[in-house]
């Protein structure tokens, strides 16, 4: 199975731990990745000029040619899918893109590749190191909403809960599970965005040992900005792992190759707990 890996522009800089662990996991599952050199997906410019954002996303799709795409960031995937839905034949023509190739392309998120292409049963058989911890999963909005673009229940998604539980963990329920991380609001009103992040982390604090995420935008808030969120929520200290890091551990991949040194909130006590 081969995918073009579209990292977007945020992950390589903000979340190289996500990138490295996802690539290690793919390697161990025989998913071949070809790095796609391409600019931003257009998501950050949507509020100002949506047509330009759509053009950027379609440009990225054009660069993929006929190799199916895998993204790590959920916002990237939603931009790409949305743009394809909106693209009229005339618009594609103006960008010199072939409509049929664009429509045929699969645009998948890393989580979806694991869940749909590999599947829970095959993954379960590969678990070498069960991780007996309480986990709070945060899907991130664009992993499953709007329902018209994805194959999950928009109120009760379960792919990520399932993926966490096959690793031996318990996925807990918590109050603001479906709520946004706040990252899109950061450029408009920092305090509002931090308050959104803080409230979610507060809900998780008593319920889980760690938080699991699937998007570098969410990681920016929950991990990199957790210290700032503490001024709204008091002490938090909740380790935040990308699912790829978590699965990597469960698959028996050496922890020192999964990018844990990049995690901002210390993960040492969690690692000591689960590693022999």
């Amino acid at each position: 199975m081969t995918y073009a890996l579209y990292t977007g522009c945020t992950t390589p800089v903000v979340a190289p731990n996500y990138e490295v662990s996802a690539r290690r996991v793919c390697e161990s599952l025989d998913i071949d990745l070809e790095l796609l050199h391409a600019p931003c997906c257009g998501n950050p410019i949507k509020p100002i000029r949506e047509t330009e954002a759509v053009a950027m996303a379609l440009h990225v799709l054009g660069l993929a040619g006929d190799t199916n795409l895998m993204t790590l960031c959920s916002a990237c995937r939603s931009s790409l899918l949305e743009a394809r839905e909106k693209a009229s034949p005339e618009f594609l023509d103006r960008l010199h893109l072939d409509e049929e190739t664009i429509q045929m392309l699969q645009i998948n998120h890393f989580i979806q590749v694991l869940y749909e292409d590999i599947g829970l049963n095959r993954l379960r058989k590969k678990i070498e190191r069960p991780l007996d911890v309480r986990v709070a999963v945060h899907y991130g909005c664009h992993l499953y909403r709007p329902a018209s673009l994805y194959r999950e229940d928009p109120e009760y998604p379960h792919s990520l809960d399932d993926l966490v539980e096959i690793c031996g963990a318990h996925s807990v329920s918590y109050r603001r599970k479906s709520m946004c991380c706040g990252s899109p609001v950061m450029g408009v009103n920092f305090d509002v965005s931090m308050e959104m992040t803080a409230r979610k982390l507060q809900d998780i604090k008593e319920k889980a040992d760690i938080m699991i995420i699937t998007c570098s935008g969410c990681g920016f808030m929950f991990d990199r900005k957790q210290k700032s969120a503490e001024s709204f929520a008091g002490e938090l200290n909740i380790p935040v792992l990308y699912y790829s890091q978590f699965l990597g551990l469960a698959l028996g991949i050496p922890p020192e190759t999964l990018g844990f040194e990049i995690n901002r909130v210390p993960v040492k006590s969690f690692l000591e707990k689960v590693l022999p």
Binding site: C9, P12, C40, P44, V188
Partner: peptide, 29 residues
Amino acid sequence: GVLDQYQKVRKEGVLYRASSYDNRKRKNL
């Protein structure tokens, strides 16, 4: 803040561009 993002993406094609420090981190990984 929103305008800054817009101008950056239009000019550089990316919102985040890897600095030499970022690339050192990447190399170590």
